[in-house]
Design a protein around this nucleic acid. Structure first.
Length: 553
RNA sequence: GUGCCCGUAGCUCAAUGGAUAGAGCAUCAGCCUUCUAAGCUGAGGGUUACUGGUUCGAGUCCAGUCGGGCGCACCA
């Protein structure tokens, strides 16, 4: 709809001699009495032109040239809003596009010929995925889907590290549990991984090797085996949620020197050094962020000679630029919030266009069971496992609950609610609308031989629908393409969830108020087409969210 | 102490600086001999934590106060 309105308004502003660099914003008033769409451009421009907003609005209106039979009425209201009222005919005509475009409806082309990389999950293989990680996983997956709708070629990447200290501790943890399997006493440190999965890995190793590994203090085999098993479980868990990465990037690559070329990490150090932002003191190599207005310098290479996580992080992002991505999206949890400003700062200094980087940070998840809040920590082993949650509530509810709140809000995941097979559970409300339409169409086929395909010539029957429930539903269907763009711009799939919820609601109302199969044959078919269009938008939306569209419930 | 996020109906949450702050759940009152009642209609429920400021207009932006969450490592 934006594409319909904006050019007309723009040219009216020109003809009226209004010069403003304020963007024209079109909004849907909360109250229909203020029109289907509304713009405040006259209010904004009036200030710059030093004119009375209402008079200016009147003048703009006089220059608006919409095609005939599209806009029924244009009013000036309130302080100087311009309100537009569409004709039911135009709305219902537009619904035909939903049916004609089908699965393609809502897609755009602003990303055509462009590439995007979306990095998400990126958990190191130290343990099974927790519920907290799940939120970022689903958020990232939906964001990747949103980019794809606009024509971007999207790479879904998982960044991980299987070296480092935490992995050492993991290997050591498994080794100690293994020794226990061999019947030895161990003094298991509190700093090690306490989780049950460590025992399971140890038991598996004991089954495969017997006690033959007990004498060695070499932990490599324990680490390696643990890593493999854990990674497999992580991928399996993600797969259950429909999350599949195209690319797994091992941080290790950034450490490798070959053909006398310095490692990616070292190249970062050299580059920053030539900007005089590197200094060595206290045995470590520092990024002089105090020169950039920060409180403290940041360690890039520890006194042990190993890089801290920041250095490879910078090098990693450089690879994203070098790989040529037009859009670079990072999804991570609030615990990493202090990390990215340094990375961005470094990239900017090194001459990369950080405008291309978008960051989506999701706040944490607390889970409640019977009103009790559960706390979690991977190391303490009392984590809420994502797998358990999926077992409990199913993949659809898991996905939808993670994104049905804004990513900035602390999510309260009510497990009891997600389990309920009743109307209190929003998952069912959405899916029920889809199933209801499928049922209706099955019935229509049985009773009247109605077949959805090959009827494009009849789509214009939609134009005879004019009751409020029908027109409001039709109108909502037309919002879908703009809704995708909004969700994408804000990196916020939650907008889509809300939209689909309101769409389901409008359908239920239409269904309640307008008899379909019992109507006159032509009205019946028109209403079936409207239902079909609704089903199409629900499906397209569900696909973005990764939620299934059941044919019956 | 400091950086980021949050504070909106009893509960969970919406509201690109716009008009009378909206949904769902819960509560109450209605709607199934008729296409899935997992649905629909209606009612009640608010000093948007507090105090100032910016402007035609503030839940939204700014400053401060109070509460809650997450970080603040030569862990990642």
């Amino acid at each position: 709809m934006l594409e319909f309105f904006l050019p007309v308004i723009q040219s009216a502003l020109c003809s009226a001699g209004v010069n403003t660099d304020k963007p024209i914003r079109l909004e849907q008033p909360s109250d229909k009495k203020f029109g289907d769409f509304s713009t405040n451009i006259a209010l904004l421009a009036a200030k710059e032109c030093r004119r009375n907003p209402r008079e200016l609005a009147q003048e703009i209106i006089a220059h608006l040239a919409f095609p005939p039979d599209t806009v029924a009425r244009i009013d000036v209201a309130g302080a100087g809003f311009i309100n537009f009222y569409l004709t039911p005919l135009f709305i219902m005509q537009s619904v035909e596009h939903v049916l004609l475009e089908g699965d393609e409806y809502g897609k755009g082309n602003i990303g055509r010929g462009k590439t995007a990389i979306v990095e998400y999950v990126s958990a190191n293989p130290t343990g099974p995925l927790t519920i907290g990680r799940g939120r970022g996983g689903v958020l990232g997956d939906c964001i990747a889907n949103l980019f794809e709708t606009q024509g971007y070629e999207v790479t879904r990447e998982y960044y991980f590290n299987d070296a480092g200290r935490q992995m050492q501790i993991l290997g050591e943890s498994v080794r100690l549990r293994y020794l226990e399997c061999c019947g030895r006493e161990t003094d298991f440190p509190a700093t090690h991984y306490q989780g049950e999965y460590i025992r399971e890995i140890a038991e598996e190793m004991f089954r495969d090797h017997g006690a033959e590994l007990a004498e060695s203090t070499e932990i490599q085999i324990f680490k390696k085996t643990a890593e493999e098993i854990i990674f497999k479980s992580i991928r399996k868990t993600l797969e259950r949620l429909g999350i599949r990465h195209d690319s797994f990037f091992n941080e290790h690559r950034l450490y490798i020197e070959e053909d006398n070329k310095p490692s990616a990490n070292n190249e970062v150090i050299s580059a920053l050094a030539s900007s005089n932002l590197i200094s060595k003191y206290d045995g470590a190599t520092w990024f002089l962020t105090t020169k950039l207005g920060q409180e403290k310098d940041k360690v890039l290479i520890k006194s042990s000679g190993e890089p801290s996580y920041r250095l490879p992080d910078i090098a990693y992002h450089i690879t994203k630029f070098e790989r040529g991505y037009d859009m670079i999206v990072n999804v991570f949890g609030a615990d990493h919030i202090d990390e990215y400003p340094d990375v961005l700062e470094a990239l900017k200094i090194l001459g990369y266009d950080t405008e291309r980087i978008k960051i989506a940070i999701n706040q944490f998840v607390t889970t409640t069971v019977d009103g009790q809040t559960l706390k979690m920590s991977t190391r303490k082993g009392n984590a809420d496992l994502l797998d358990d949650l999926i077992d409990d509530v199913g993949a659809d509810a898991t996905r939808l609950f993670f994104i049905m709140r804004g990513k900035d809000s602390h999510l309260n995941f009510d497990i009891e609610l997600a389990k309920k097979q009743s109307k209190e559970n929003p998952v069912f409300y959405l899916q029920y609308a889809h199933a209801r339409i499928c049922s209706l169409l099955r019935m229509a086929q049985q009773e009247t031989g109605f077949n959805a395909s090959g009827r494009a010539a009849e789509y214009q029957l939609l134009q005879q629908l004019s009751s409020p429930a029908e027109v409001q539903l039709g109108f909502a269907l037309l919002d879908y393409p703009d809704m995708i763009k909004t969700s994408l711009r804000l990196l916020e799939p939650q907008k889509m969830v809300e939209y689909l919820h309101s769409l389901a609601e409008l359908f239920h109302r239409f269904y309640q108020e307008c008899p379909i199969l019992k109507a006159e044959p032509e009205v019946c078919r028109a209403r079936l087409f409207l239902s079909l269009a609704t089903r199409q938008v629900l499906r397209n939306g569900f696909r973005i969210l990764g939620v299934s569209a059941p044919e019956s419930m």
